[in-house]
Design a protein around this nucleic acid. Structure first.
Lengths: 218, 218, 218, 218
DNA sequence: TATGAATGAGGATTCATTCAT
DNA sequence: TATGAATGAATCCTCATTCAT
């Protein structure tokens, strides 16, 4: 689990401190993606990280402190929107984004299943962290396709489509990838396109056909 | 909170016991749908139910015992499939089922948001209880439409469609029902129909068009 | 475990009550010889005896109540002195008494190992019950041999001899009776005879030789 | 109760910790030799030791943990064999050993009466601790006298002799030492010598006379 | 006599957090 | 920065005992 890093001996005091902090967060992410907040003991995190109990409080003040820090770090790692590559045609960009996302998620299975796809069941504040990323992606997509990101019908339909994609991802992860990544990516695009159609039904003022056309081409 | 019931005086000993038990479960459902397992204290449940601390253990042995009992009861209350009315044409039946479900869910908002739609984040064993209901519904639908409920592509696509519906329901609940129930029901049916199409893309051996047609008519 | 008794149906009300009581005590002896007082739950006794929880209190008022009643019953069952047969020559009587004791003890292994031979570790009040039996036997023996049962040296030496016999019994019970009962009985008699000698050394006023002679003949 | 120790102020942090630990064990021995395991409350131990409730668990994890640690410490303190002085003639060595043992036991009356001489009635695991010491002494004695310590007859007879000695010790302790230590020591030696004779009767292959002779001289 | 629901005190254990070194 | 001893509140669970039926 621990990557090979320079030995303790070869580090300056500051580097060692930085390293300790990193190790704590790393361990925290690991524990919190396995267990619920209340089922994780700070003393366990410290012990596993090989660090004195009290030091954890020196760095993060409180249990909730290290928890949120860990969540922030996890969100950063799995941030969909962070990988958006500008300049590509929308269909291409979206497909690339989904593929990258699936790869990330497959790598960090436990983390993803519990934190990202785990649903609202977890801590609300933490959920917001990940939910914010989702909305960032939705907003980005709306803008890309020339829609008003505040349109209620669009928001409902696209958020629901993301729900579909999340659930599909879970099924895919849990069934040892019986389906190829390409097929899943394609279904994700379909989900978005169907979402646009759904939005148009809920709000007839929307003209979604051009956008659906554009996304069809990848 | 307490429903109107016959007064304590008018009950036999056994009826009073039954009532106490019911009251405990009721309270437990309430508490567990507000807070996470670890954040609920058994003593609180007992106190709220107006019952001695130890009695709870007399009935349920352990905290987890009453928790699971409460979850089972909640699942029973919100069981989609339980309301299936036989004999109707599929499209009609499905729409009726969705409508009933949405009404239930609107009534038991807190419970639904945390437990049913709350996701895998909560207790795995509890999640299974609700997940089982979902699969029961999916299986019922497959059978109704003449499909093999074990087909992997169908399973993935329909489970994903349910994910969409759940997320749509959450959005609908959280936005004070800006959209009419009818519109949501209609979108849910679309989600299922799109799911069938998705399944056919993943598994070309499937012939889904007739079923999609049938569902279009409500 | 439960002996064959007339069926419940064939009993009068009073007999049934008597039977219930007996069953409770029987169960209590069993449980208390397996576990320490605090580790036995009244509810367990009641459940095992197949009797309502509260009924136990009807009969015995308190946990300690049924405990002492059970101990008394156990003491009665294993009372050494109870089997004393008058009229025999001392050596013969003593040997018969030891043999009977060993047989009893072998039959009620669990009970004996924990309660009788278990030592002072158990409840003092219960220990007294069994200790009293021991002193009764010692007194009987002194009288039989014409000694003053209050002589301190005799008391110390004979009580110590009983300690030897008890420990020998434990060893014998735990080693599947590698040694024949006859040999053990003979060693027990030796222990008593050595006890007399020991008493004489501690209190030179005692003349024990005649008694030692008498006991040698069996 | 508390021995004279350097004041708190004069200690390093580590020394103070060590001291706290010691104080906890000391208190535990005290409590457990007065009351049965279940009748001792951890919170009482902590309070008496003047230490926070939770600290006890920091050191010993569980109630049973501190209990066994206390028993081990008690066993160490009263270990007969630990005081064996090599090089002396057997009779002399044995007598010295008995005298030391009696002195120890008289000092730690409560502890001895309940734990060491208390018998099998207490916790089996704890009993084993003390029983092991007894067998160590018996083995030492066998070796000293040139016997095979695995001989069954010897084992039975010597273990029984130890039973005699224990019971004699109890009587002696409870009767305010009416008999002098020397007399008791001498009787203990007699018990061992009689044990050897007993073994020879049970196993005629044993030649115990020389050893009995040797022990006679002290 | 018999039942088992109801009570509430008591006790082990966990754990976040503080703090002296 | 780093350590781990110390604190005490919080919580689950057990169990003897009572009592209405």
């Amino acid at each position: 689990m621990a990557a090979n890093r320079p030995t303790t001996a070869s580090m300056t005091r500051k580097e060692r401190a930085e390293d300790t902090r990193r190790r704590l967060i790393e361990t925290a992410i690991d524990q919190f993606s396995r267990n619920h907040y209340d089922d994780v003991a700070v003393s366990d995190i410290a012990k596993t990280a090989g660090v004195a109990h009290g030091l954890l409080f020196h760095y993060f003040q409180t249990k909730r402190g290290i928890y949120l820090e860990a969540m922030r770090q996890a969100a950063r790692e799995l941030d969909l929107a962070a990988t958006i590559s500008a300049g590509l045609p929308p269909g291409r960009a979206l497909r690339g984004l989904f593929r990258t996302h699936l790869e990330h998620v497959a790598e960090r299975r436990g983390l993803a299943l519990r934190l990202i796809l785990g649903g609202r069941g977890t801590d609300p504040e933490a959920w917001e962290l990940f939910e914010a990323d989702r909305w960032k992606s939705i907003t980005w997509l709306c803008t890309l396709l020339g829609f008003d990101p505040d349109n209620q019908a669009l928001r409902l339909a696209l958020r629901a489509a993301v729900g579909l994609i999340d659930e599909m991802t879970v099924y895919w992860l849990e069934h040892e990838q019986e389906f190829g990544v390409d097929a899943i990516v394609e279904e994700a695009v379909h989900a978005i396109r169907n979402g646009l159609a759904s939005a148009a039904r809920l709000d007839p003022a929307l003209d979604v056909e051009p956008a659906r056309e554009v996304l069809a081409q990848g």
